[in-house]
């Protein structure tokens, strides 16, 4: 039996949203908060799961996951996978998530040389050698954008993306439209 088809609006249900910062600078989250008073409107429409704003430690089933930052260490990979597993829609937010960004500028250097330089050669920072505490996540040989590890549904470029662009993405998604950015909202810098 087919469900009756009509174009009546779907009963407004709050969208569950999770956000996180991997190898990023929190710049994108700051930009998110820059949507200012619109955040109040947003809170009528969405409910936050794991996010630096909520302090929830693990991501539960969500409609939307926003990822800031690329993958710099093993911990980033675990968190990203947790998000992908739980979020119906995953968005890469900002230059770092999309192409590795500033952290990826280390990629033409050998990680071993970097570790040596930072922890052994460079005077004054640490005389204890390279930290090997199992609690600390190990760095990856190179920094990677998140689409190299999980499927990403949408990308929101910018470093950081302008608040208006974030707002546009969210309102488009809430309205069930494919998100688009017009001139002025699309920035790689």
């Amino acid at each position: 039996m087919n469900a009756p088809m009509n174009a009546a609006p779907v009963a407004a249900k709050k969208l569950k949203v999770a956000t996180t910062s991997l190898a990023g600078c929190f710049g994108c989250h700051m930009s998110f908060l820059d949507i200012d008073e619109r955040i109040l409107k947003l809170l009528e429409l969405v409910e936050f799961d794991r996010s630096p704003i909520t302090d929830i430690k693990h991501c539960g089933p969500c409609d939307l996951g926003l990822i800031e930052g690329g993958l710099c260490n093993a911990e980033n990979v675990h968190v990203l996978r947790e998000f992908r597993k739980n979020c119906k829609i995953l968005v890469a937010v900002g230059a770092c998530a999309i192409n590795g960004g500033l952290p990826a500028q280390r990629n033409h250097l050998d990680l071993r040389d970097i570790l040596e330089e930072v922890y052994q050669t460079e005077a004054g920072i640490s005389h204890g050698g390279i930290p090997n505490d199992p609690e600390l996540p190990l760095p990856l040989n190179q920094v990677h954008p998140i689409h190299e590890v999980v499927k990403v549904d949408y990308f929101l470029p910018g470093c950081p993306p302008p608040a208006d662009a974030i707002w546009k993405l969210l309102t488009d998604l809430l309205a069930g439209r494919t998100p688009t950015l017009g001139h002025g909202l699309m920035h790689y810098d």
Binding site: A95, N99, G101, L102, Q105, H108, Y188, D189
Partner: peptide, 8 residues
């Protein structure tokens, strides 16, 4: 290439 626009 390496196109990190924010620093270009």
């Amino acid at each position: 290439g390496n196109h990190f626009c924010p620093s270009c």
